[in-house]
């Protein structure tokens, strides 16, 4: 390659054209960063970094984040029918559902109904594939938009029914 070097390529090498062209790209962004307003995560702007945690990220509606057990908004009772489908379909076995049989009166007859007692969800091993949510027949188990799952202890990663119904406390920071 070095034998057949033209005058043009020698001049380009001498005046560092290749390096200056590359640097021009970088410098253009640096110059724009001085004048453009800081608008996080706009791809057309030169400063792209989102200022988390002062700036909350825009979490999409379909995000598969922290699990939640929904209650019936009319009665306040859990929508879970303890059908155990979520536990069966989970590839990593993070869900444990237990139920009790409760008798109730339907007109004249006395019927038995499965009632949810405990629901344990181990978020430390969950891979957030969303299969449990897809297969829940009553839309009870839901993966919400909450994503800040860090806790102080390993035991805190195992969520019980109360935690799943209440949801996590989100700490918001001031700008």
């Amino acid at each position: 390659m070095s034998e057949r070097r033209s005058i043009g390529s020698i001049l380009r090498r001498l005046f560092l054209v290749d390096l200056i062209k590359g640097l021009a790209v970088t410098l253009r962004y640096s110059a724009r960063a001085l004048v453009e307003p800081r608008d996080g995560a706009n791809p057309l702007q030169s400063i792209y970094t989102a200022q988390y945690p002062k700036e909350r990220p825009n979490i999409p509606e379909r995000w598969r984040g922290a699990p939640k057990l929904n209650n019936d908004p009319r009665t306040g009772e859990s929508l879970c029918t303890a059908c155990n489908v979520c536990a069966l379909v989970c590839p990593v076995d993070v869900i444990q559902v237990s139920h009790a049989s409760r008798e109730f009166r339907d007109g004249e007859k006395v019927k038995k109904k499965k009632v949810l007692t405990t629901f344990v969800f181990d978020t430390s091993r969950c891979m957030f594939c969303g299969l449990c949510q897809d297969n829940c027949p009553t839309l009870c188990l839901e993966l919400t938009q909450e994503f800040e799952l860090a806790v102080d202890s390993r035991a805190g990663l195992v969520w019980d029914r109360e935690m799943l119904e209440k949801g996590i406390n989100v700490v918001t920071y001031k700008k």
Binding site: P43, Y48, P60, R62, W63, R64, C129, G130, L143
Partner: peptide, 19 residues
């Protein structure tokens, strides 16, 4: 930066970024 734009598209459609 550009990868992030695609991940946002995927995230909005599917609900997760990487896996």
């Amino acid at each position: 930066r550009e990868r992030e734009e695609i991940l946002k598209i995927i995230e909005n459609f599917i609900g997760a970024r990487l896996t």
